[in-house]
């Protein structure tokens, strides 16, 4: 299985501010009644974006100035809560290709990398500076340089955080682990046989 090497993501940004934005907010549970991930995009942040009657609430993702943004900015502990892959799937299908936040919840982070959607961290002050830039100029281009662990916007370069394993996986095109895991099957059989339990 050969996948694209993800060395950088370029696009416009939109900021959904707040800390501890949980997966129930990213995709409310009632939209998980599905047997495929198709169509999840329109439900990203649904309850934050829509009133009970389906009309729009004021929300950055409804703001026409940020339409077409493909890089999401947010606060700390982004994606906490459940392990539902529906959350990064809905963001990806909404059109996001990278997320920049102060920190990420672990399962959400792993799920996103497996989709090939880089999640990088910036310190709070720099995130705020970046958010201020795109608030002033929504057309500003952001480059998430995965390879060099940098975020570049409006002529400024910020040093971003990305753990080694995710960095490696993205830049070598091995962000979906399945090919590597299948390669290890002979050794898997050895471990299976050595375990004292089978159930």
């Amino acid at each position: 299985m050969s996948l694209a090497k993800i060395t950088s993501v370029t696009g416009r940004g939109v900021c959904v501010p707040g800390a501890d934005i949980d997966t129930d907010r990213i995709i409310p549970a009632r939209f998980m009644k599905c047997v495929t991930f198709d169509g999840l995009g329109e439900f990203a942040f649904y309850d934050e974006r829509k009133k009970a009657d389906g009309s729009d609430k004021p929300h950055p993702l409804n703001d026409p100035r940020f339409k077409g943004a493909s890089i999401l900015l947010s606060g700390s502990n982004f994606g906490c809560g459940s392990s539902r892959e529906h959350a990064p799937q809905s963001l990806y299908r909404f059109g996001f290709r990278a997320v920049i936040a102060e920190s990420f919840a672990e399962i959400f982070f792993g799920n996103s990398i497996t989709l090939g959607m880089p999640c990088v961290t910036l310190p709070r002050a720099e995130l705020q500076a970046l958010a201020a830039v795109i608030e002033k100029d929504p057309k500003a281009e952001i480059v998430v340089e995965v390879q060099n662990r940098k975020v570049i916007c409006a002529g400024k370069s910020y040093v971003a955080g990305l753990p080694h394993s995710a960095h490696e996986a993205l830049i070598t095109g091995k962000w979906d682990a399945i090919a590597d895991l299948l390669e290890g099957l002979p050794e898997v059989a050895r471990v299976a046989a050595s375990l004292p339990y089978a159930i």
């Binding site: 392990s83 892959e85 394993s165 895991l181 290890g184 050794e187 471990v191």
Partner: peptide
């Protein structure tokens, strides 16, 4: 240690999962 299969090229561990549980919401896909 008893469940580690090998180190993957990205530095993560390929870990054997002895017991796997599934339910209707996260398994169909």
């Amino acid at each position: 240690d008893t469940h580690a299969v090998r180190t993957l090229p990205n530095g993560q561990t390929q870990l054997f999962v002895g017991t796997h549980l599934i339910h209707e919401v996260t398994s169909p896909q």
